[in-house]
Nucleic acid binder design. Structure first.
Lengths: 381, 381
DNA sequence: TCTTATGTTGTAAAGGATTACATATAAAAT
DNA sequence: ATTTTATATGTAATCCTTTACAACATAAGA
């Protein structure tokens, strides 16, 4: 079933059918309608391969991520795919499973599929692997690869703003002893977050106490162990910021097991704003990494890359603090945080009451909005 | 950069280059090596569109899901894509966003892309939407569409086994008053789960008490509200099974807010085994829907569909109970569950101890294995 | 009525691979 | 050495669209 059969049946040329298909203006409305009816009648579906072959593009984009099971990615994929669909572009995505060596394979596969552009949203990128794509002049966009920002399109994440908001929020609640649960220092993104946290502390004139920085792996269990270490300290922080939400979940569990009430006796702030942040108890205050914004910038950047080869300045996204229920004013009894006596006890039973208090005390303006299970606020500048 | 340039440079015909590319046996090793070197030298990448156009296949499969943000899907996608990659097949996936009407669009887009086969893994399928695909004789596979099982390939989920295991597990722990948090009855899958639960109760000679079945929506908040209703009953269940894990999370929250300790005073069992089931506190005992198995069967079925049009009997997958920490022996004080006096209190502090008890009492054989953050057991037949 | 401009349709040449068929070469059999 | 067979390579048709260009028709202007 090809365009010729349609043409024959409609008693027009293939060119006319093609024009109808592509909504070319130069075709009489009557002819157009007639052809469309025949197309319908014959269930004709144009052959995209032939079309792509002729026009030299596939309207296919590649999207490379680390791991689809990582809850960070679905929102990003969703947004990327949504934008693509608007443009009649389909997305093929592949994942490296965190192995930078597999990146080369992913790129190769996509290049062989003749995709029009590739977005590489993994945190570790081996430049070597990009060759396959650059050889054929394929537009690329990377996520937050500072070292490659001059040679390739990039979407940069400015971590400092998010941590700044988090620390300011805690300070406004009276916290001065703020700990941090860090990730492995060989991972660039973990390292950058740690630096951003320390910078934020300094900017708020708070002490960076090395004892309060626990380094661990990026999973729930890591956060749990790290929090147990922090809780075992004689002079312990009244608030803890983590490198990601999974670790924050572990931290909540550790606090719970130790009989430390969150947020009454300890405030916890995560990072990422995974869907799970809304389902923990108490719901997690966290720094949201704006994934759909990232996808948006990446996509636009690629569209631009198809038109021009010149690399424009990288778009930048800013993580923002999302205030939920895991942060609260520092406990009165602890005074300035020295010799904090953390009482055993349950979580607060009245988050709404807590909220009112919070709202009064917090220095940042806030906006309420419901999300899934809980009350959620977005800090506003 | 096309095959002709390679041919010219290598002083052979395009046919020979093509044969080298496709590993055809009829080419001298010396020639082959020479051609490969030229290909390397020129960075030649074959044009997949031209190839597909000629051979009439794309080695592209479509995968339609409801919503990538639903944590149910990533594991399924991952498995499907992994199998595809082994066969040199790429996957394009689209989502309906739970709107059966959008299915038609999804199918249409994939058909236009000339995919070789489509897997439709949404729970609600409108047969009308499949026409676009059947017209062009495209192999299709559906998930659990009982009403369409004679006309289309399907992967069927046999819910009853999972619920049977769950109820047996609870009964072995001494529970006889078992409640259920059901989903909207207009959703087929929710309805099927409810039926499977009731059947399991009957098979264990337990009473199906309508009062203990709370109907609600499928989200966290729904589970919370439903559990609050159940807890408010004078004569309330000592164990509750939910339609999915999100609702179970809500149920845990409600219990927590009401000062009811899980699993000491109340056992909770979820359904799906989402990644989050391992991160709740206590970690959730749940019925695992084997997503990678589903993906596997679906993929194999499609491969078969490409060769033959005859529809073989549907493969069936069985959900299995995964025992974690949200189930425990029924509290002694409650006797046979009548007039249960549920004491306020914290969660059990010693899951390991609890485990030993469980192991002794449970009738099903169990196997220990670590998973992410917690101790996890898989019930074995 | 005859140009000229405008709008509509048709013809045929790409686009880049695969592959049936023909042909040339090498190996084996006689 | 000659015929037969097997292997290696080349020629050219084919897959299905799009689109430059040509051709035609119609309407407007002179």
């Amino acid at each position: 079933m090809d365009i010729q059969q349609v043409a024959k049946r409609a008693k027009v040329s293939t060119a006319t059918v093609s024009r109808v298909l592509n909504r070319s203006s130069n075709v009489r409305e009557k002819t157009s309608a007639h052809v469309r009816r025949i197309i319908e009648e014959l269930n004709y579906v144009p052959n995209t391969n032939a079309r792509n072959l002729r026009v030299g593009r596939t309207r296919l984009f590649g999207l490379i991520i680390s791991d689809i099971n990582n809850p960070f990615f679905p929102e990003l994929i969703d947004a990327f795919e949504g934008l693509a669909a608007e443009q009649g572009i389909e997305v093929i995505f592949t994942h490296t499973n965190y192995d930078p060596r597999r990146l080369q394979n992913c790129v190769r596969r996509l290049v062989e599929r003749n995709v029009d552009a590739i977005a590489i949203m993994t945190s570790e990128v081996d430049e070597q692997a990009l060759q396959e794509a650059t050889k054929v002049q394929l537009p690329l966009v990377l996520l937050n690869q500072r070292s490659l920002q001059d040679k390739y399109r990039n979407v940069m994440v400015e971590y400092s703003r998010g941590f700044q908001e988090a620390v300011e929020h805690l300070r406004a609640l009276g916290h001065t002893a703020i700990g941090f649960i860090a990730g492995p220092s060989h991972l660039r993104s973990a390292q950058r977050r740690r630096e951003a946290f320390c910078l934020a502390l300094k900017r708020c004139s708070l002490e960076v106490c090395p004892e309060w920085i626990a380094t661990t792996d990026l999973r729930v269990e890591g956060g749990k162990i790290a929090m147990q270490q922090l809780l075992a300290l004689g002079h312990r922080p009244t608030a803890v910021v983590t490198t990601n939400d999974l670790m924050a979940v572990g931290a909540l569990q550790a606090a719970h097991l130790a009989g430390v009430s969150v947020p009454k006796d300890l405030s916890v702030i995560g990072f990422d704003d995974l869907p799970i942040a809304d389902m923990t108890f108490p719901a997690l205050t966290t720094i949201r990494l704006p994934r759909s914004e990232i996808a948006h910038h990446a996509f636009i950047s690629l569209l631009e890359g198809i038109r021009t080869t010149k690399v424009t300045p990288c778009p930048v996204v800013y993580p923002r603090l999302i205030i939920r229920q895991s942060t609260a004013p520092v406990a009165r009894t602890t005074g300035g945080s020295r010799e904090a006596k953390l009482s055993k006890g349950n979580f607060s039973r009245h988050p709404k009451t807590l909220f009112r208090t919070l709202k009064r005390r917090a220095s940042t303006q806030v906006e309420f909005h419901e999300r899934h299970a809980g009350l959620t606020r977005v800090a506003q500048k």
